[in-house]
Structure formats: C-alpha cells, structure tokens
Design a protein around this nucleic acid. Structure first.
Lengths: 70, 70
DNA sequence: CCGGAAAGTGCGCTAAAATGCACTTTCTGG
DNA sequence: CCAGAAAGTGCATTTTAGCGCACTTTCCGG
C-alpha cells in the first residue's frame, strides 16, 4: 500500500464515520494541524502518528508478505 | 500491529532471508544507521522508511479494519 | 577458543515531522 | 443563496527521524 492510498483509505473511513478532522484530532491526540497536513497529502507521517489515527477509526496497520503478482 | 511487533516481523523476515542489516541498507536505500536504530527498537520510523524496508523484504504495509475482539 | 562478521551505540548535524496560531478557501444544510 | 462549519495553508518553533563516523559489543563458524 502506497502512502497516498493509505491516506485515501483513512480519509474515506473518517468520512464514512462522519467524524471531522477536529474531532479525530481530539480522539487520537494527534494535533489538528498534523491531521490536516496528512490528509492533504503533505509530508511523510511517522508510524506512531498513523497508528494513533488508524486506531481511533477502528483500523490498524499491518505488515504482510506481498502476494506474488504472477 | 504495534510498532514493536512490526519491527519483530521485519527482523524475522530479514533473518529468514539471511540478509544482513548492511545488505538490507544497500538494497533499500535506507541508511545502515537507520536500520540499526529501527531494529534495536529506537525511534519511530516514518512510513516511507518502513515501506522501503518492507518492499525489499517482499512485504508491504496495509491498513485494514480491525477485527472485532468478541 | 577466537577472529572476523554482524549488530549495537555515543556524538553531532541537518532536514523534516509535529505542533500552534491566525487567516483563507471550500463545502453544505437550511 | 449564504452563514457557519469544515478543511486547507502561510509562518514560526520545537522536537526528532535520518544520517555519517568511529568505536564497542555480540555472535558464530571453523
């Protein structure tokens, strides 16, 4: 999963739950400014930041063996 | 997946492939110093760094909906 | 047992992640 | 259509990830 795709997934999940960036910031403990930057595609978030956001959205980051492409 | 668990998975995968930290550094383009730090549990890697390492090891980072714990 | 290979670490630098504040732009429900 | 809510952004600061270099420690095959 590329970062862009991961971000899209987070964003879609947030919208599906009808949570604002502001509320997500409160719940996750990640600064609103940081959430805004991530969702607007700026920068390269750390694992900790992504993980805290994902948690609140009921998601998690996994490391898995790639499926062979055939 | 917690960071610690993710790191363990990366490390085990590297060892399974009998790749040294040094060679992994070469292949991934991530500095040897950085790989050492990550594997020894220091710090909080960025998505980009984790992703480059995972790639070389034939793995990938995924964001998935958490399984309900029941 | 022991030497070389692999892994871990102290020190220091730079670039960038994370943050706050204030302002602008965009979206949306009534 | 329009006000308020939500999202995006410029500027500045603090913290820290990523990195190099040199050194120490640990591991392991012969």
């Amino acid at each position: 999963m590329q970062l862009e795709e991961l971000i899209m997934t987070l964003k879609q999940r947030r919208l599906m739950l009808t949570v604002t960036q502001e509320y997500l910031a409160e719940l996750s403990g990640v600064a609103l400014r940081t959430i805004k930057e991530i969702e607007s595609g700026k920068g390269n978030p750390t694992f900790a930041t992504l993980s805290r956001i994902a948690d609140v959205l009921g998601m998690e980051i996994k490391l898995v063996v790639k499926q062979p492409v055939n």
